[in-house]
C-alpha cells in the first residue's frame, strides 16, 4: 500500500514533467546562452508579491524573533535535525541518480547523526569528515535528462523552475519519513523544514533583506540569483555565457 502510493505520486510527478515540458519551450540557443526563460512572468510576479507580503507580515518577524530568542547552537541543531530527516529521501534520490557513493554518504550520515548525534540534532558525521549531501528529486530529473523548464515562483516557497517544482512535489510525497509506521508526529519533516528555513531566514536576514526589500526589482533579482545558483549546483553553467572583457566598449567610463 505504501509503495503503491509512492509509485502513484512518482507517476504523477513524471506525468507533470512531461506535460510541462510539452508546454512552452525555450529555444536551444537561448538556453545555451544561459538566458532566463520566464513565459509566466505575470503570474509569477503576482505570486512574488504575495510571498513578499507573507514574508513581511509573518515569516521575517517570526524568523528574526526565533534567532534572537533561541540560542544560535539550538538554531543550528534544529537545522541539522531537519537535514537529517531529509536524508532517507536524499538517499533514494541519489540511488535514482545512479550515484551509489552519494547514496552511501546519505545513509552513513543518517546512521551516524541519528545514533551518535542524538536523533540528528548534532552532526558528528562531519567530524568524521563525511561530506554533506544536498540533493533532491529536481536533481534526479536533471540527471535523467529533463530540462530546466520555465521559471516559476511557488506560493509560500519561493523561486523554482517547472522541473524543480515537480521535484519539490515528488520529494514531499516520496519522503520515506512520511510513510514510516512509527512516525513520531504527522508531517514532522514539514515542520522541521519550516523551522530550518526560519533559522536561515533569521541568520541571513541582511542578505535576504537586501535582495527582497532594497533592490529596484526584487522579482528580477530573486529570479536571476535562483537560476544562476541552481545551474551552478547542477553543473549546468554554460561556457558560452562567458563574456570577453576585452570586447566591451568602455570608452568614457
Amino acid at each position: 500500500m505504501t509503495l503503491t502510493l509512492r509509485q502513484i505520486s512518482l507517476l504523477v510527478a513524471l506525468l507533470l514533467t512531461g506535460l510541462i515540458a510539452g508546454c512552452a519551450r525555450q529555444s536551444p540557443e537561448a538556453r545555451a546562452a544561459g538566458e532566463v526563460f520566464d513565459p509566466h512572468e505575470e503570474v509569477n510576479r503576482s505570486i512574488h508579491g504575495f510571498n513578499l507580503s507573507v514574508d513581511r507580515a509573518i515569516f521575517r518577524p517570526a524568523s528574526s524573533g526565533y534567532v534572537s530568542v533561541v540560542p544560535p547552537e539550538i538554531v543550528t541543531s534544529f537545522g541539522l535535525f531537519a537535514e537529517n530527516l531529509s536524508m532517507p529521501g536524499q538517499a533514494v534520490n541519489a540511488l535514482l541518480q545512479g550515484d551509489l557513493p552519494k547514496t552511501g554518504l546519505a545513509l552513513s550520515r543518517l546512521l551516524i547523526n541519528t545514533v551518535l548525534g542524538m536523533g540528528g540534532l548534532f552532526d558528528p558525521a562531519s567530524d568524521f569528515s563525511i561530506p554533506r549531501v544536498d540533493t533532491n528529486f529536481g536533481e534526479t530529473l536533471h540527471v535523467w535528462g529533463f530540462g530546466e523548464g520555465a521559471y516559476v515562483e511557488i506560493p509560500l516557497y519561493g523561486p523554482s523552475t517547472t522541473r524543480d517544482a515537480v521535484g519539490v512535489f515528488a520529494d514531499f510525497f516520496t519522503n520515506p519519513i512520511t510513510f514510516a509506521k512509527q512516525n513520531p508526529a504527522d508531517n514532522i519533516g514539514v515542520y522541521a523544514e519550516i523551522v530550518r528555513r526560519m533559522g536561515d531566514r533569521g541568520n541571513y536576514s541582511a542578505t535576504i533583506d537586501s535582495i527582497l526589500y532594497e533592490s529596484a526589482d526584487s522579482y528580477a533579482q530573486a529570479r536571476l540569483i535562483y537560476l544562476q545558483n541552481r545551474r551552478f549546483e547542477l553543473g549546468e553553467v554554460s561556457e558560452i555565457a562567458e563574456i570577453d572583457p576585452f570586447e566591451l566598449d568602455t570608452e568614457g567610463f
Binding site: S215, A216, D217, A220, Q221, L224, I225, Q228, N229, R231, F232, E233, V237
Partner: peptide, 13 residues
C-alpha cells in the same frame, strides 16, 4: 558567489 554572477545582478539592478 556559488555561481551567482555579481556583475550581472548589478546590471539587472
Amino acid at each position: 558567489i556559488e555561481g551567482v554572477n555579481l556583475l550581472l545582478t548589478e546590471r539587472t539592478e
